[in-house]
Design a protein around this nucleic acid. Structure first.
Lengths: 143, 143
DNA sequence: ATGGACCCTGGAGCAACTACAGGGTCATGA
DNA sequence: TCATGACCCTGTAGTTGCTCCAGGGTCCAT
């Protein structure tokens, strides 16, 4: 059941990551250097799959690699007393909450936009584009 | 009432855009080259304000510049159906909703982690990586 | 043993800005 | 009048986070 001895290509397929990206993550220390085969091929195990999946998700959520790094640090140092890590967790928590608020605002706007397109309408009457134009905020103004 | 003869700095202030970004947009053809003053300063008018405002809005909604470009193209061809724009918005909306769901899972885990610390626990039980692991999508699975 | 799919390293290129460096312009006020 | 400082100009380089070669090695099936 557990995946072992994956090639870099297999790991990429499993996690939806390009091979170059995996090597890049290794270079900057986001992924640990894997074992190598006799022919010098990288060889990955289940932990790599988990870690890389996590990294990709967090990146996908719009966090910078620096944040990914701090989150991984939390996971990597299970013996550290909590006091040291507490601030870090709270900071990440606040960041996540900020992000949720941002995205919810965004969703509201996109949702509103999505209901503006009358079926069969043309660009000329496209209220999406209208809605994104400035005169809808600061009152009418038609030269 | 209509703004005319704005300097690049004034345009930037009006639209919340950095001066360098405006010049960058000009270079890559997102904004048309403006008129120049005798002293070779860029001089913008109302159309530029509208266009740049539109660009910034769309970018703020998370669309790439390529999408901005197609939207601008579409806006210039008023006879085409507006279903294309609608599809772009819907797609973006779904992506945003997916991200919100992921973020809420992550927040749950960070929240749990924070409380665990409060009680004098250790990071040992940190499941931050699991919170975004693949098995959370396809049902439970406990090794 | 050879063709093709895959892997290796190292370096360049891309998106979307952002930040200088080195210099010109313009308004204000002493 | 001229000097000071805020603003503008071009051009280039740096940033983040990948992505794509070039030139070569490995592996495996036919």
């Amino acid at each position: 059941m557990v995946q072992q001895d994956l090639s870099i290509g297999a790991l990429g397929k499993l996690t939806g990551t390009k091979v170059e990206t995996i090597r890049f993550y290794e270079k900057i220390g986001i992924l640990p250097t894997p074992a190598r085969t006799a022919g010098n091929y990288r060889s990955y195990g289940h932990d790599h799959v988990r870690r890389l999946t996590f990294v990709r998700r967090v990146r996908d959520l719009g966090f910078p690699l620096e944040t990914v790094r701090s989150m991984l640090d939390l996971a990597d140092q299970p013996d550290r007393p909590c006091g040291e890590v507490d601030a870090m967790v709270l900071e990440q928590l606040h960041e996540v909450e900020r992000k949720i608020a941002d995205l919810e605002r965004l969703r509201g706007e996109l949702d509103r936009l999505a209901h503006q397109c009358r079926r069969g309408g043309r660009i000329a009457e496209c209220r999406i584009i209208e809605a994104l134009s400035p005169h809808h905020e600061d009152g009418r103004c038609c030269p």
